Every structure is written in C-alpha cells, then in structure tokens.
Computed example of a mutant assay.
Amino acid sequence: MSDTPLRLVIFDVDGTLVDSQMDILAAMSAAFGRADLPAPEREAVLGIVGLSLPEAFERLAIEAPALTRQSMVEWYKEAYVALRAKVGAAQSSPFYPGAREMLERLNTVPELLLGVATGKSRRGLDKLLEGHDMRHFFVTQQVADHHPSKPHPSMILAALAETGIDPAQAVMVGDTVFDMEMAHAAGVRSVAVSWGYHAAESLSQADALIEDFAELPMILNGFWGTKI
C-alpha cells in the first residue's frame, strides 16, 4: 500500500477548462434587453464570471430594483439554455487547448483526485460534463446551487470534506480573482491561468501562474515534491 497521501486538484470551469464567453455575453445581453436596460460592456460581463448569478446581477445591474434583478437571473438562464441547445454544450463551450489532455493525464495518477468548483448551476454543469464526456474525471463537484458565491470558501471546504483531503494537499486552479480569493480563504494553494476572463496581472494573489496547461504538472510537483 502506498504511503503517498491523497491529493486534490480543484478546477474552475468557465474561463479555465472551457471558453463559454460567447454564450455568456449573448445571454447577458438578452437578460438586459428583456429588462429594457443597456447591456454592460464585454469586460464588465467577463469580470463577474465565476460569481453566482444573483451576485453577478447585483454588480452589473445595481440600479435595477431587486425584483427586476431576480427576473434577470431567470432570463439569463433561459437565454443560455436556448443558446446551448442550438449547437450542444461541447461546441458552445469548447475546451481550451490542452485542457482535456491534462485532465486525462492527471486522472491516471492513483493518488490524485480531481474536482470542480464552479459558479454554474447543477443543471449547467451536468450539461457540460455530458457534452464533453468528462463526468468521470471529477470525484467532487461543487456548484452555485448549494453554496454562497465565490469567493466564499464554502465550495473548497465542501470538496475537502467530501474527499477527506487536508488543505495542504489541495490546489485550486482558476482564472479569476474570485478563485484566488476563495482558495486563500480556504487555506489551499492556488494556480491561476493566463488565458481566462480576468487579466493575468490581476491574479497576483495566486501561488503560481501558468500560460499553458502543460506547465501544471511541474507546478504541482513543486508544491508537493511529486513526479506527475
């Protein structure tokens, strides 16, 4: 029996593993249109990716009444579902280069567990996992339905509890400030990716920054002294 401790790598989804920005921008525009409000600029919309939808609309539609913002959440969901249905989840949210290959590589390491912590709903994550045939990669899946919005540490703490992993043996991989703040609050290391929705220079709180998924094993080995 191996003495190597179990370790956990938790991935954000949108902006980290897959690029959903076209549908996010279009669904946001649809929600604002139904509310008869001007749609925010692209940078503002991508800046809130990772937050739960109620929190996102509190920031993007701060002038709107609370009841209107609640409706906008539902209008966004309706538009997103319709957009995804046109082409399927795999095409509407394609993998970033090297993402699937890295998941497959990490999944072969016996002592390494993989998880997800996402601002997506359970339904949204299920559709994505099915569309990309990647449900089998993740032993723990934390979604917005069951937790406070990032950067609250609840998602990571739940993933640690479900897997029995010590915080020192866990890493959060994400593309936003919210991911890095969540990791810090939960007491786990963080790896930021440069290709996501927040500018790389804003992710200075991360323990490491990668520009290609091929760099991730080396970073993890540096954290843990392993040979992945």
Results as ranks from 00 to 15, higher is better:
L160V: 10
Y76D: 00
T226M: 10
M180Y: 00
A56E: 00
V81L: 13
G124Q: 06
P65K: 03
G47W: 02
V193Y: 03
R69A: 09
Y197E: 01
P153L: 07
S29M: 02
S190L: 07
A99E: 02
G119D: 10
T118W: 04
A39N: 07
G222W: 14
F138Y: 06
L6Y: 09
W75H: 14
T4I: 15
A206N: 07
R84S: 13
K120G: 02
I210K: 06
L157M: 13
L6T: 12
R69P: 07
V109R: 08
F138W: 12
R69S: 07
P151F: 03
E181R: 14
P54H: 06
D3P: 10
G115E: 01
W195R: 04
D36N: 12
R122S: 14
R69T: 08
K120I: 01
Q91Y: 03
V18E: 05
M72G: 04
A89K: 06
F223Q: 07
E55K: 12
V171E: 06
T140P: 08
R69E: 01
A186R: 05
E43Y: 04
D12C: 09
Q205L: 15
P148K: 15
V177H: 11
A158D: 15
A90I: 00
S52I: 04
I165Q: 05
R42W: 00
A35Q: 08
D175Q: 08
M172F: 11
V13R: 04
E43N: 13
F213G: 02
A117V: 13
Y80H: 09
V177K: 11
K77V: 11
G47E: 02
Q91P: 01
L113D: 00
I219V: 15
F138G: 01
P110E: 11
H184G: 11
A79K: 09
L106V: 06
P153F: 05
V18C: 12
M1Y: 11
S202P: 00
V45R: 00
M22K: 14
L37R: 13
L103C: 09
A35S: 08
L216H: 12
I48V: 15
L46Q: 06
M182K: 07
R34Y: 00
A192T: 08
A183N: 09
V73M: 06
T16W: 02
L25T: 00
L60V: 09
V109K: 10
S202D: 15
G33L: 00
I219S: 10
P151L: 02
E211W: 07
A99D: 00
Y96K: 07
D12E: 11
W75L: 03
R122F: 07
E41W: 02
L128R: 10
S149D: 07
R7K: 15
H136P: 03
F95M: 10
N221T: 09
G50M: 10
L103N: 03
P5F: 14
A27C: 03
E101M: 12
Q169C: 08
K77R: 15
H147K: 14
L67R: 14
L17H: 02
L157W: 12
A144T: 03
T163S: 12
L113I: 04
